[in-house]
Design a protein around this nucleic acid. Structure first.
Length: 103
DNA sequence: AGGGTGACCCGCT
DNA sequence: CAGCGGGCCACCC
């Protein structure tokens, strides 16, 4: 269960968003990669948590996928996430982004 | 301080 | 290739 979403975001969460913003259009990064960018290569799970808190489009959270290329999650649904990626030129097949697009 | 949850990951079967 | 189990981490009550 997810009670109420806190408005005050921790340092960690902000770092996650900052790293996510750096992902270039047309490319994608894995949760682990983002975790590594902020200096916590093992916090991939926590990264997913942080991104789930972000409901705004200012952060390209749709450019973050799983390490195996599978889509992962998205507040507005997996379908929407895939569409966004494709609209940016990222090819998706069988609910997975091609490895070549992963940084 | 402790327990539960989640947009994860990896190894084994 | 799919399913299961155990491990990791940050955050909430």
């Amino acid at each position: 269960m997810k009670p109420n979403i806190a408005q005050t975001h921790s340092k960690f969460t902000q770092k996650v968003w900052a790293a996510t913003k750096k992902i270039p259009r047309g490319k994608v990064a894995t949760y682990t990669a983002v975790a590594a960018m902020i200096g916590n290569p093992r916090s991939s799970r926590a990264v997913g948590n942080a991104l789930s808190q972000n409901r705004d489009a200012h952060v390209p959270c749709h450019r973050v996928v799983r390490s195996d290329g599978s889509i992962g999650g998205f507040a507005r649904g997996t379908e929407a996430k895939i569409k966004l990626l494709q609209s940016e030129g990222v090819q998706v097949a069988r609910n997975k982004v091609l490895k070549k697009y992963i940084i």
